[in-house]
Amino acid sequence: MKTEIAGILEKHEGDRGGLISILEDVQARYSYLPAEALKFVADGTGRSLVDIYGVATFYKSFSLKPRGKHLCSVCVGTACHVRGAPVIAGEFERQLDASVGATTEDNEFTLETVNCLGACALGPIVVVDGHYFSNVNSSQVKRIIKKTHVGLDEAEIKADRRLYLHTVSCSRCNHSLMDPDHKIDGSPSVRVTASFERKHGWLRLSSLYGSFAVESEYPIRSDEIVDFFCPHCHTDLKGASACPLCNAPMVAMLVRAGGIVQICSRRGCKGHMLDLDGAGV
């Protein structure tokens, strides 16, 4: 733990007021603030432990107790309260068998109440892992918990209208890159040949815009820059532009409906752009 904390401190070296960011990083790593970690932070920053403890207990987003995998916040602000938030909080307590502020025994859920999320018109509101559920009634509680167990991100792809399917083709030979036999996110995937570290193999991307699901023949390390080739004409799909986020080369593919989609060639980078006019070719 000591080396990990030292790494976090090194990252924030120089910014004097960086205590909150340091604690945020520590909490992101351990899901809570272990007592030992606070001592290391105190030693590393030269502050006294009592100062750090004071900050850690002052902010509600910091937790000194281990938290569950999913954080479930029930809004009990005035507007949600009058619309029956206490009943919903009670229902969560019953369903999860954990009181407010506590974590379930299997470390899956941490239940907490928040005072206002600023979306009073949609109340009562429940937020699970950053996903908002509005106008919740107590009969929906069971479904929310079940949905969380399945995975909230998966459910989103089906429900969210902003994500849509696109069919892409090679910018050189115009051959379709779609692979209807291999599905990712429940829709046909985009198949290309990936090459890195002298390995060549298939790589399949989700065809849903906004989904970053990827499958590949060989495991690709995070941050690795991969060369993409068309599996039909073996042209390098590398585009002319660089990723706005990480400066790696972008990979360009033609969208059937017209225009170009570009994705970053770095594994794990979420840089992408969709240019439907094709003006930026």
Partner: peptide, 9 residues
């Protein structure tokens, strides 16, 4: 010493 301080809010 800074042994004691404020906690919570």
């Amino acid at each position: 010493a800074k042994a004691i301080g404020f906690r919570g809010r």
